[in-house]
């Protein structure tokens, strides 16, 4: 019990620090990929603290509620991860976090925010099946939904689930809002939806959304690491490698359109995951 408390505390404090640093490195590497010098590594933290110090303006009173809910459920998902709980429920809690943001964005009358929210819903429509199938693949291999059992499993999951891993990488691009799938909101400002989902959030609210992104990143990288859980450091290295891959993909793709994304994700993402899982069934 005490162990769990300590692990939770470390996760809650440590995840945003590492996540923020990774975002800083991301921005630096992205800049280098574009032949620029790039911002300092600590830039995300500067942004974060600056946003905390801004005047708190809002469009309605309870926007902040949705942002908090977005944050809390991301933390809850992270805790489920570090406490090695049910993977499937983790996905649902994680989805709750996203839906909170969607509802928050829709709760204002701003057209861009609303359209961004609609697109985010479409993204969920695309990637949610893949995430659930991934959990299912994990169950097929380990016979349990608990993350603990993945860590206890004698072999890395990647051997049995290579295509599921690929599908997850695909979804990762959507979840990290990287090009070609940065429809709902984009890390750089030149988008038809201004800032989409986050258009109407400012100051502290935006800071908390950034913070949640850091948690999200850690959860997603943690999930990647699970595929290579034996030994864990290999998993972490591969997760970082996957993150670098995302940066490269971000820089070699145009933004596609979301109808295309839904089709492609259901075809490629769900397809590959399913092929892998059916393979597991056929395997004696």
């Amino acid at each position: 019990m005490i162990d769990n408390l300590i692990i939770s505390l470390i996760a809650i404090v440590g995840a945003p620090i590492i996540g923020g640093l990774l975002f800083g490195i991301d921005r630096r590497i992205t800049a280098r990929l574009q032949n620029r010098f790039g911002p300092p590594i600590l830039q995300p933290f500067y942004d974060f603290f600056k946003l905390l110090g801004k005047e708190s303006i809002a469009v309605n009173q309870i926007q902040m509620m949705y942002v908090l809910s977005h944050l809390f459920f991301a933390i809850a998902a992270l805790l489920m991860l570090v406490l090695r709980q049910d993977l499937l429920m983790l996905m649902f809690i994680f989805a709750f976090s996203t839906i909170s943001l969607i509802i928050g964005a829709m709760s204002v009358r701003s057209p861009y925010s609303k359209i961004g929210a609609q697109r985010e819903i479409m993204q969920m429509l695309a990637y949610e099946p893949v995430l659930l199938l991934m959990v299912f693949g994990v169950y097929k291999v380990t016979g349990s939904f608990m993350i603990q059992s993945i860590l206890d499993y004698p072999m890395p999951l990647i051997y049995s689930l290579p295509l599921v891993f690929f599908a997850f990488l695909y979804v990762l691009t959507i979840k990290l809002r990287k090009s070609p799938f940065d429809f709902s909101t984009s890390h750089h400002g030149h988008q038809e939806l201004i800032k989409g989902l986050t258009t109407e959030f400012s100051g502290t609210q935006l800071a908390l959304i950034e913070l949640t992104h850091w948690y999200d990143l850690m959860i997603l990288l943690g999930l990647i690491a699970l595929f290579f859980a034996q030994p864990l450091w290999v998993g972490i290295l591969i997760a970082l490698g996957a993150y670098f891959l995302e940066m490269v993909i971000d820089n070699i793709c145009a933004r596609v359109t979301w109808p295309w994304m839904i089709k492609a994700t259901w075809l490629i993402g769900v397809g590959t995951a399913l092929v892998n899982i059916i393979g597991l069934y056929l395997r004696p």
Binding site: L33, Q34, N35, S179, P180, S186, H190, A254, R255
Partner: peptide, 9 residues
Amino acid sequence: FGFEALFMQ
């Protein structure tokens, strides 16, 4: 169309 690297190039 959201191709930042190409824009920079």
